[in-house]
């Protein structure tokens, strides 16, 4: 039985907590959040104790695993502290960190203490994305030439509007499509160069936005050309889809279906409600968030290496920040 303590009590922390609670091999023992009410509510829902401080929680709750679900810029603080506490494992929500340096610090701290670190790139556990990789690997479309993804919906409202502060969240490029960037890298290999346009990268660093949009073009080392659409500007509901075109076929999910509706207007209707990030649901027997966390716990129990490494988390951030930089400078960015 893994005793899990969670830093943060926002939308994703709730999702993770419910997955641990449902898992027969785990239980949530502690919840820490700067907001005592939020921590108490989430702790109560999961039979855990709410703590007023992170160090106090590590001390008192005696967790085996710490799961870091605080806003991105603070991942590094909690992950490094957890690494130094000598736990059995650490989970960090995507994106791994706000900078490549932060990611490298987290990886180094966990390596130094021998603590397995798992970056929660849940997309790899979404069945359609996992199946697409299997199909690509099996040659279903032949040699892949192009890949396109799209993701997003309306703007997510959260604590301190932190998603709306590009300084904190990195906007849609870092926070939202890091999912696709990791899946793309997992499926099609390393990226050679990136070119992007977007709203938030063009704004002063301390800006606050209530929508964001970006279009990213990726050239992979394999020659594959990719396109990633990222939106927090679409009131028409959360949409996820992709298509992979090869020299022997086309594989798609929610991308080219003939709806018989050639024109759709999705218009904002005043201030949009909603307290958290829209989390896509895919009604399958196993919740993908459950699957990703169970995978990590299973690896911890057996000593196996988790399928997502700290390097994976770091590289996805590197690609996203290269896209952010390209959108700032107007020039393509070549990756090392």
């Amino acid at each position: 039985m893994f005793r899990v303590a969670i830093a943060g009590a926002g939308g994703m922390a709730h999702m993770h907590a419910s997955c641990y609670t449902a898992n027969p091999n785990a239980c949530v023992v502690g919840v820490y959040d700067k907001r005592p009410d939020a921590a108490a509510e989430m702790a109560g829902a999961n039979g855990a104790t709410a703590y007023a401080g992170f160090a106090e929680m590590l001390e008192a709750a005696r967790p085996d695993v710490v799961d870091v679900c605080v806003p991105t810029p603070w991942h590094v603080d909690y992950v490094v502290a957890a690494a130094e506490a000598g736990l059995k494992g650490v989970v960090v929500e995507k994106p791994m960190g706000r900078s490549v340096e932060d990611c490298e610090r987290m990886a180094a701290a966990c390596a130094a203490s021998g603590t397995p670190l798992f970056v929660a790139h849940v997309l790899r556990f979404f069945p359609e994305f996992a199946e697409a990789k299997r199909q690509v690997d099996a040659g279903a479309v032949g040699t892949v030439v192009t890949v396109r993804t799209r993701r997003g919906g309306s703007f997510p409202r959260a604590w301190e509007n932190w998603y709306g502060k590009p300084d904190w969240s990195g906007g849609v490029i870092l926070d939202l499509v890091i999912h696709d960037l990791d899946w793309l890298r997992w499926t099609f290999g390393d990226v050679e160069r990136v070119f992007a346009k977007g709203i938030s990268p063009k704004l002063p660093p301390d800006s606050e936005v209530n929508s964001d949009y970006a279009l990213i073009t990726l050239k992979f080392k394999s020659g594959v050309i990719g396109h990633v659409e990222a939106t927090w500007a679409d009131p028409g509901g959360f949409k996820v889809g992709f298509e992979i075109a090869g020299d022997a076929g086309l594989l798609e999910s929610n991308f080219n279906q003939p709806a018989g509706v050639p024109f759709v207007a999705a218009l904002q209707r005043g201030a949009e409600a909603g307290a958290a990030v829209a989390v896509p649901e895919s009604p399958t027997a196993v919740n993908p968030y459950y699957a990703e966390l169970d995978h990590f716990l299973t690896c911890l129990a057996s000593g196996a290496t988790p399928s997502i490494t700290p390097k994976d988390g770091c590289e996805a951030v590197r690609i996203a920040l290269a896209a952010f930089e390209s959108a700032q400078t107007g020039e393509p960015v070549v990756l090392p």
Partner: peptide, 14 residues
């Protein structure tokens, strides 16, 4: 994509 919404066209979807 506009400031107040998104219009989508799929011209040959009929």
């Amino acid at each position: 994509v506009g400031e107040k919404g998104v219009l989508t066209l799929d011209m040959f979807s009929q």
